[in-house]
Amino acid sequence: MQFRHKIAGGDFAKAGNVASSVKKVLQQLNIDHVISKRTVIALYEGEVNVVAHAYSGIIEIEIDEEKIKIIITDKGPGIADIDQAMVEGFSTATPQVREMGFGAGMGLSNMKKNSDFMKISSIVEEGTVVELINYLKPDARQESK
């Protein structure tokens, strides 16, 4: 089962719409609500990152019996130092973005906390790809670690 959503950079009012629709899908699939909640929170943070930093992005969600895989691909400034970006509280958000209640520097670390697997690759001045996986069965999660 695959879903694709486009998101526009800078449209904060719509940030979270993808997470909402995925939440409904996971509920209908009878996914454990703890896993579902983690996924929705990680996805929401990813969505906000695209809206806050990039020009545009595509979110692909793939669900099968084993896992939920999310790939967020954006066109944007990219991340120069990924390790630094992962540090809680580090943020390159503009003052305007912070004014709106975003850009606290918790996004990437929250995404990591709420996913079983996370991989970030980025090219400065081109864009960023974030891959997230949450496993539906507890033993699969152990193996991935």
């Binding site: 089962m1 996914i31 669900i63 539906l136």
Partner: peptide
């Protein structure tokens, strides 16, 4: 909780229905 609108108890079947 009494979640409504589950397509199936079994996630594999629910995926097919989805």
């Amino acid at each position: 909780p009494r979640p409504m609108g589950r397509l199936d108890e079994n996630t594999a079947i629910a995926l097919k229905k989805m």
